[in-house]
């Protein structure tokens, strides 16, 4: 049952990302349509980073994206008939990589929020 829950969490993360990424992509790639001026300038990036709403948005989005991405990547790697020991190594490696990504991303988000 554990693997079913992990897989369901992958779907759930995907669904969360669907909405978060819609907003994220609209900000940077459809900015003219939504009247967002220079979304990549330091001032506008920091203006967003220092709102509590965006803090929550980034933290949830980051965790969901790392989980969804690395779970999907692991599924692809597992389909290559690697053999048991290599599969364990891949799983461990992806866990470490995921933790590093979440930690770096969260640290940056919180630091930018507190500035």
């Amino acid at each position: 049952m554990n693997s079913v829950r992990c897989w369901f969490l992958f779907l759930l993360a995907g669904l969360i990302l669907f909405f978060i990424m819609a907003a994220h992509m609209a900000t940077f790639h459809l900015s003219h349509f939504f009247g967002i001026h220079e979304p990549l300038s330091y001032d506008s990036v920091m203006a967003r980073s220092q709102q509590a709403l965006f803090l929550i948005f980034y933290l949830i989005g980051l965790s969901a994206a790392v989980y969804h991405g690395l779970y999907g990547f692991r599924r692809i790697l597992m389909e290559l008939s690697l053999g048991r020991s290599l599969e364990k190594l891949v799983t461990a490696g992806l866990c470490v990589a995921g933790s590093v990504m979440v930690l770096v991303g969260m640290a940056a988000t919180v630091m930018a929020f507190l500035q």
Binding site: A65, G69, A97, M101, V104, A107, A108, T109, A112, Q115
Partner: peptide, 12 residues
């Protein structure tokens, strides 16, 4: 995305 995390961390 894996590069994006590290690049955007510079805002801090």
């Amino acid at each position: 995305f894996s590069l994006h995390i590290f690049v955007t961390a510079y805002r801090a």
